[in-house]
Structures are given as structure tokens and as C-alpha cells.
Design a protein around this nucleic acid. Sequence first.
DNA 1: GGGAAGATGTTCT
DNA 2: GAACATCTTCCCT
Length: 194
Amino acid sequence: MKLFTGDFFEQDTGAVARALLGHYLCHETTGGMMVGAIVETEAYLSVDDPACHASRGLTERNAAMFGPAGRAYIYLIYGCHYCFNVVTGPVGSGEAVLVRAVEPLEGSALMRQRRGLACSNRDLTSGPGKLCQAFGLDRSFNGCSLHEKPLYLAVNNNNMAYRPLQVTPRIGVTTASDRLLRFIVKDNPFLSRR
DNA sequence: GGGAAGATGTTCT
DNA sequence: GAACATCTTCCCT
């Protein structure tokens, strides 16, 4: 499996969010391997984007966003759910791509066990909080590299199977909600929303 | 199948 | 003390 290199994530954040669709998120744990195909992302920009955590400057919480591209930014939202982001752009830019949903390809039994629910495959990873729980991601992965095991992003040579794409406003944000920064695989059944 | 509301804790004002 | 890049349960149809 071929991994993405550093320069890929240093591109424009919107371009990275779009380009990641159809590629793989992989996590090798002691319990087993988990792989999902990315079907939904959102871009969070540094300028003119009040919805981005980095828009109010560097804090202890968002420090990972200001670090090198290709690392994870993971935080707790609503007191009970984690969100997984990929840091993008040049160092210090404070931009990232939120991975909102993946299609489970390998390790779905393990994902269901981590979720602790008798849910369908569609409910395993169809949302940022669900996906983090299924993949076993928490704040201990904040700032860790996505270029190496156990957590990494890998190239799907057949990613064009995940087409066509569609662009929509972002979900759940209360500011800048008119900006088209959500990228999805059109009509994929594993999206967080239609 | 769909809408409403509560849970929950960290961060920032 | 309010806001928050959400999920689940409960009740309705």
C-alpha cells in the first residue's frame, strides 16, 4: 500500500479535501487492521473562515493545526465526540481537512465492537464522531504523523471509482455556512447526510 | 423514516 | 457561563 508523501498535504486545503476522496484511511491496532475509503471531507481555512478553530489564533487546543502538514488534529466536541482532521498547507497556516465519513472496507467487525452498538455497516463510520469511535481515535493521536504506522493515509489506485463528486456547504457550522467547502462522493450510501 | 431534545466536558469570553 | 465542525434515544407517523 502506497502512502501519501508530505508535499501532498502542503497543497491548497480545498484541493487536498477534494483529492482525498476515494483514498484510504488505515489504522493498524493490536486488535486488527481497519481500512475505510474516504467519502466525505470538509476544508477549514485560515483566512476569512470564522468556522475554523485557528481563526482566533494559536491556542493550546488547536496547536496541531499550526504544525506541519500531514499530521492529525483531533479534538473533543460537545463533550462526548472526537473529530479527526488532517493538517494541511504550509507550517503556521492553521488549516486542516475534517474527515467526516468513510466507507468501511476492512475490519468492520472490530469497528462495530469499538462502537458498542448492534448497528448496520452504514452507521459504523457515517459521521465524524462515529468514525473516530469506530477507528479508536482519541486525543492521544493529536499531532501524530499520518505518514507511518499505526495511523496513515494510503493511495487507492482505483479512486476514480468514487465519482462523481459534489460540493456543498459545511455541516453543523453556524458561521460562514454559505461557503462551499464540503466535498462528497455523490450518492454514496456512507455519507453523514444526503 | 423523521424530527426533537438531552448528554457531556473542554475551551474561551 | 456560553458555545461547540455531534450522536443517540425517544416518540411520532
